[in-house]
Amino acid sequence: MARAGILYSDVARAATELAAKGEAATVDNVRKMMGDTGSKSTIAPMLKRWKEEHQDEAQAAKFGLPESILNAVRGVYALLQSDCENKIIALTAEHDALIQAAKTQQATLSDLIESLTTNKITLEAQLAATQEKLESIEEKYSALQLKFTGMQSEKEGLTLRLDDRSQEVRELKQKNATMQNQFEHFQTATANQRSDDRRAYETRITQIESELQLARKNNQTLESTQTKQEAEIQQLLLINAEIANNAQKRKEDLEALQIKHYQTDFLLQETKQENLLLKKDLSATQLESQRLQTSAAVSAKLQDVLTEQLKQSEIKTRKVEEEKQALIIELIKTRANDVTSNENLNDNPALESQSKHLIQDIPTTKPDR
């Protein structure tokens, strides 16, 4: 008849017996303890459950130590672990605070960079507008220069015309003087004709003088216009110089902003470097924590070794005491046999007293562990 399935109680009972014997509670040992029954896949989860429920007992059986010593070692280990965790928590908090401060500083620097970038864009736009205005003024200046050149040419033409009119007047005056001489010779014969010619000449001279005055007025008007245009040109030149000065100032402000931007980038790089150093410090702290945990494990192992040595020393002491008791008993028996062979023990009170005294010297209690 086939056997029913393995129960948890069977596995727990076998594991408890193995632990009581000081043997390891493995799947193979438990299966062997139950008579080589049950599959390993069935025993393994049950054994795992038993180990979780009897973890302290399994540790005590594994190291062969009293529960009080194990509790003391656990207390020392827990204290070391708590100290390490507190240090790690403090360092982590400090690191988080430094990272938060670095993030805050980085955000401030980002806002400053954004503000500087906005100012830079605004200044560049103003500079572009100023340059456009300057180009417009230069175009107007060129147009006025061309206009001034045209008016200068017109003035030169009027001056030439005025010179021609003056030459013509001189020629007419000279001709008039000549005709007056002729009139003196022919005054009597041609008095009337000469009078008509004189009036015609005078009319012509009057007309020419009127044209000459008109040309002079036009020349004065052109000179006044030229003076005004020169004043306007001077004003435009002053405006142009002022715009150039403003552009230079904008350029200097932009260079100053660029310097601040470079300084901000440098501070940002220093902050990143500090963050890397903090990360390295955290890694070193974690390594120190691991070292402390390893030291605690070594201390626990050393405690186990010392406990084992103490146990061996107690065993040796107990054996020595047992051998001593055996030797004393053997000595008593030897002496008793010697006395018996010579005389009766009851007839010798001194020997009886000595035997009782030796028996009383024999330890009746076992040595402390």
Rank of each mutant, 00 (worst) to 15 (best):
L277D: 14
K366G: 05
R161Q: 13
R335I: 12
E343F: 11
T190P: 01
S39M: 14
D253H: 12
P367Q: 05
E274I: 01
S115Y: 10
D197Q: 12
T340Q: 11
Q290P: 04
Y77P: 00
A189E: 08
Q126I: 13
Q309M: 12
I362P: 03
N176S: 15
K251R: 12
K333G: 11
L47S: 03
K279E: 13
Q152C: 06
F186R: 05
L306Y: 13
A189S: 06
E154D: 15
A14L: 01
T364N: 03
P363K: 02
L65P: 00
L276M: 05
K311L: 04
E184F: 08
Q106W: 02
V305R: 14
K272R: 11
P367K: 07
Q174Y: 12
H261E: 09
M34P: 02
Q167E: 11
P349V: 02
T159S: 10
F148P: 00
E202F: 01
Q131D: 11
R291N: 02
L172A: 04
R13Y: 06
T108M: 09
K140M: 02
G35V: 02
L134I: 06
R369M: 03
L162P: 01
A15L: 01
Q55D: 03
Q220Y: 09
M1C: 03
W50I: 00
Q59E: 10
A297H: 11
T188P: 00
Q55H: 02
L172Y: 03
